[in-house]
């Protein structure tokens, strides 16, 4: 009978349609899965590397979040040596938008931005006028180099803000590097037997000038 005959090809056509629909759904699922690929490694390495770059004890920083002036002029090999987490990944470091280091092409990777200061250190030398054997250092500095030469008086002790930093009963003579607090203005006091003349002490202090910057670390694992 023709009905039975006609239904078979109809069923076959229907099944072909269903198969192709199933295939289409699997293709859609595949596309959705690929689109959902987060690749957490990108973000993790970017986070970790940016942390290592700005942390206190890093070779690139003077203190936490303060970079040395030429800290980022690294080669990729040097970056790998100092920060092994970046090994094998494509990395780009930008400071205020300018690329300072690039390996590969990390387009499509994760970016982490850090707020930093870039510190430039200067050395300023002056021969202070000693007012009652004391002088104030004009800028805040972390250390001072004192050049104490022979003069009319023997300098036995040097105090920085009442803290003894140098002491020699037989008299100080030579070049001394002294650490001071950068959080307060330092007043140097020289204890001698006679008032010191100008020129017997020369001091060098190291003020740092900081400028703000944004460090962007982009990594494509």
């Amino acid at each position: 009978m023709s009905r039975a005959q006609a239904n078979l090809p109809a069923v076959a056509v229907a099944l072909v349609l269903l198969t192709s629909t199933a295939g289409l759904s699997v293709a859609l699922a595949d596309a959705a899965f690929a689109g959902a690929d987060r690749d957490p490694a990108d973000r993790r390495v970017a986070d970790a590397l940016s942390d290592r770059l700005v942390t206190e004890s890093s070779s690139t920083t003077r203190r936490a979040n303060v970079l040395r002036e030429d800290a980022l002029s690294l080669t990729p090999a040097a970056l790998d040596r100092s920060f092994p987490v970046a090994r094998g990944h494509e990395v780009r470091l930008e400071l205020n938008g300018a690329t300072v280091l690039e390996r590969g092409d990390p387009i499509g990777g994760a970016t982490v931005r850090r707020v930093v200061l870039v510190a430039r250190q200067q050395a300023v030398t002056l021969t202070p006028t000693l007012d009652r054997n004391a002088t104030t250092i004009p800028r805040r500095t972390r250390r001072v180099t004192l050049e104490i030469g022979p003069s009319n008086a023997t300098v036995r002790t040097v105090r920085a803000n009442d803290r003894i930093v140098l002491h020699d009963p037989s008299g100080l003579n030579g070049s001394y590097d002294v650490r001071v607090s950068r959080f307060e203005t330092v007043r140097l006091r020289f204890e001698t037997d006679r008032p010191l003349a100008r020129g017997s002490v020369e001091l060098t202090y190291y003020p740092t000038v900081t400028s703000k910057a944004t460090l962007a670390v982009t990594v494509d694992a």
């Binding site: 009905r3 039975a4 005959q5 239904n7 078979l8």
Partner: peptide, 14 residues
């Protein structure tokens, strides 16, 4: 033609 029963059986089998 095949009989309806066989036809339906073929369909079902397919």
């Amino acid at each position: 033609a095949t009989s309806p029963v066989v036809g339906k059986a073929l369909e079902a089998g397919l």
